[in-house]
């Protein structure tokens, strides 16, 4: 019983997360808002992807992420809808996985990143996919991203492996390079297109 209020706190977190995703789809059809979480092994370039996407910069000597960091960015799609991404960039070290649920709970989108030059990071990416399938929200949009595509001469994870794995798990796959900005915007645009639209969601929801 002693832990009653603490449990309460955690559930409120989940609850809020859910609210958030509801907000993302149930707000208005033209201006979507979605919580996105980046997961993946340490040093695969999660922060670099976010920085490239949000600020258009690339810093080869970026800082270690402790805990998590937050940035947000809005993009406009061709059908004149805008999508505001609230991006949580998490720490990569394995032990920080203990804190990850705090951030992926209630997220509408999860971007799982691995480094194409590191098979280990690909294994880690699979761990994250399984973790999200178990504990993430059921309608989460997942993307598998092979980063550092510019280092193709050092490639150790064939693109086909990524494609196959993504297909098997109903994910969207893309190879990017934060360094050359390759496919970074495409990644987020594709995610935006795949978001559930309120017009599709509303019929299934009873009018409140």
């Amino acid at each position: 019983m002693g832990c009653g209020s603490s449990r309460l706190d955690r559930t409120s977190g989940r609850l809020n997360g859910l609210n958030n995703s509801e907000n993302a789809s149930a707000h208005d059809a033209k201006n979507l808002r979605v919580k996105l979480v980046l997961l993946g092994d340490s040093g695969v370039g999660k922060s670099c992807i976010v920085l490239r996407f949000v600020r258009g910069q690339f810093d080869p000597t970026s800082k270690v992420t402790v805990g998590a960091s937050f940035l947000s960015q809005t993009i406009a799609l061709q059908d004149s809808t805008t999508v505001k991404f609230e991006i949580w960039d998490t720490a990569g070290q394995e032990r920080y996985a203990a804190l990850a649920p705090l951030y992926y709970r209630g997220a509408g989108v999860a971007v799982i990143v691995y480094d194409i030059t590191s098979p280990e990071s690909f294994t880690k990416a699979q761990y994250w996919v399984k973790e999200l399938q178990k504990h993430g929200s059921p309608d989460i949009v997942m993307a598998l991203v092979g980063n550092k595509a510019d280092l193709h001469e050092k490639r150790e994870v064939p693109a086909q492996d990524g494609i196959d794995y993504a297909e098997k798990n109903g994910m969207f796959f893309i190879e990017t390079s934060a360094k050359t900005a390759d496919n970074i915007n495409e990644l987020f645009e594709e995610i935006a297109k795949r978001l559930p639209r309120p017009s599709q969601v509303q019929p299934s929801q009873p009018a409140s």
Partner: peptide, 18 residues
Amino acid sequence: GVQVAWISGPWFLSIFIN
């Protein structure tokens, strides 16, 4: 829909560095 720990977690872990 913001949880305090999202923000305070990194503060505590990094002891405010950065």
